[in-house]
Design a protein around this nucleic acid. Structure first.
Lengths: 338, 338
DNA sequence: TGATATTAGTAAAACGTTTTAGTTGCGTTT
DNA sequence: AAACGCAACTAAAACGTTTTACTAATATCA
């Protein structure tokens, strides 16, 4: 009962060899370091029987690295982040790296604390969906030549590797899709955040309208405060759709806004059909199963995760010189409106 | 550029005091240890200006604890787990603990590796949604008197604290609900896993039927292989519903099976209405927004997280003697069928 | 045969902390 | 003026590794 885990010292004692020898064997340096087959076998037998696992904390302290990658997202219970996180975890695990993840809840104070925390835990690399106000901390990581990949959101002014999707284009295409279906009063429901990822969606919408047959009407853009509770959001959406009954198509800039929108429309008994179309940003089961099915802009989760991991490992092995790379992927409009 | 983080030694040198003194100050033991106000101030000033953060790895090595709680779940991208994880993270963060989480993907080998990993990282406590085949490892943690709380699933034979919901009761009630609505051919769609959590749902269903007006028909229970791909599952469900057209109500034992079921029904053009009712296990946006709305058994996420955290911290402070506690919560049937 | 290489191993420092057991100097007491 | 107590600090060990620089013994060679 309650045996403290064995240490390398215990193994060494039991095998009647030095700590060094055991360490060499554990780290597969035995042959290289001229340890005899007999000793190797003896030590390995003891390890197998007594069940030794190296203390990673001591290892980290000594070597300065941890085989851990820190992952900072806005909210791990958001399906987009959970999906990416899961895929990253999988891929990293295969290369013997673990993921240590955390949600910032869009709070720069918490985000800073998290970066500090990860640093003090000596994680080897950072994957961050950054929020404004953390530029200094991230720049600090870059200065220390730590592997860093930003994703989803981008902070201008930082010269860091990045994986994201072209939100301007996605939003432009979605809006244009509406216009081609002869929609003339296309609304945009978005969130009150000035991160690039969101402002790009706005810009894409505006540009598409301005390139189209009707002129841009700012009142058809509804900006919902970030973190506002759901009931209030639904109310606000209801008011909005009532105030502008001429709206014949709506692009929702985020997943959860689309959900709130669908709830509002359902409550109002407003049908989604050829006279009133809807596109959601970020696909999900909800939209596929909805009656009628809801069109959506799908982000390529798998591709995103793949690229993030690729860049991170590239940096991890490039020891020192980190070629900054930006990967911009395309999202896909899934048209379910027919 | 590239300055390695400051150590306590650097601070000590700069302040012209000993390492010990700095350590005392950092750990708020300065007054207790009779450090003069002047020295305290001097050191704190340097720390503020130069920005020192203690190396947690070294701390962990020395103290044997880490202020980290390990969380092992089946799949972090499953909304149930993601939700619980997020809540736990929140609550732990408030008490200055961090969460280190990982998915087992229902693979005992990976699960064992994860427990080892967490152990070797010296996490202070373990929150585990256990899978069969890991009894020995978990027992090992208990033997070492580590704080452990199991949740969601339970492994019989382990005398560990546990937080879960009464799946038998939930399932019994859901089925009885159908019977009260005069359904006489109630089907159960479940998964081919012999974990208690799932077998309880099966048992609750069977018991309810046997307590009711008609007799139990094993052919109305469909067991889908775990981890089977979605398309295949949908096919199988379609066959099932075709083979037994008399089915007038179906209880789905998991979230994702319900989603597949809804897809199958949609493809078959089988309407969900008073003549064919459905209840899903674990609520979600999908069910709320579905037309018609889908009834669901809702697990009390918040309560689950709260209890887990309560038990863990209780154990963390009970140093040594760990009163084993089992908390069984009730789920709630949300009837949306009218 | 003596010098040199090679083989097989080890002692000890270092990573950055915490903590135990001191030490030093000064003011009080007797 | 010796003894004591206390305030204010510090030296050094320890946590469990990795790694560098060694040593001792044997084998090889000219």
């Amino acid at each position: 009962m309650s045996e403290k885990a064995l240490s390398i010292k215990d193994i060494a004692k039991k095998a009647n060899v030095s700590i060094t020898t055991v360490s060499f064997i554990i780290n597969n340096k035995a042959i290289e370091k001229n340890i005899s087959a007999a000793v190797i076998e003896k030590v390995e037998k003891i390890i197998k029987e007594d069940g030794y696992t190296p203390n990673q904390v001591a290892r980290s302290l000594r070597t300065g690295n941890s085989k851990i990658i820190g992952l900072i997202v806005e909210d791990i219970s958001n399906p987009f982040f959970a999906g990416v996180a899961r895929l990253i975890e999988d891929k990293a695990y295969q290369k013997d790296y673990k993921i240590f993840y955390s949600s910032t809840e869009n709070d720069p104070v918490k985000a800073k604390a998290l970066i500090d925390l990860l640093k003090s835990r000596q994680v080897d690399a950072y994957i961050i969906s950054p929020i404004a106000g953390t530029e200094k901390e991230i720049q600090g990581l870059l200065d220390e030549k730590k592997p860093v990949v930003l994703f989803d959101r981008y902070l201008p002014g930082l010269d860091a590797s990045y994986v994201g999707v072209d939100h301007f284009k996605a939003s432009y295409e979605a809006t244009t899709h509406f216009l081609q279906q002869n929609k003339r009063n296309v609304a945009l429901v978005t969130v009150d955040l000035s991160v690039e990822q969101i402002t790009d969606r706005y810009a894409g919408y505006v540009q598409s309208i301005e390139d189209g047959p009707v002129s841009f009407r700012p009142e058809l853009v509804l900006k919902i405060p970030f973190n506002q509770n759901k009931a209030l959001t639904v109310d606000q959406l209801t008011q909005f759709f009532k105030a502008y009954p001429e709206i014949d198509a709506t692009l929702f800039a985020t997943n959860y806004l689309a959900v709130s929108g669908l709830i509002a429309l359902k409550k109002m008994n407003r049908k989604i059909d050829k006279d009133f179309k809807v596109i959601a940003y970020d696909d999900g089961e909800v939209f596929k199963l909805h009656t009628p099915e809801i069109s959506a802009v799908e982000q390529p989760l798998e591709e995103i995760a793949e690229n993030i991991v690729r860049l991170i490992f590239q940096q991890l092995s490039a020891k020192g010189k980190h070629p900054v790379q930006k990967v911009i992927l395309s999202s896909r409009l899934i048209d379910r409106s027919e």
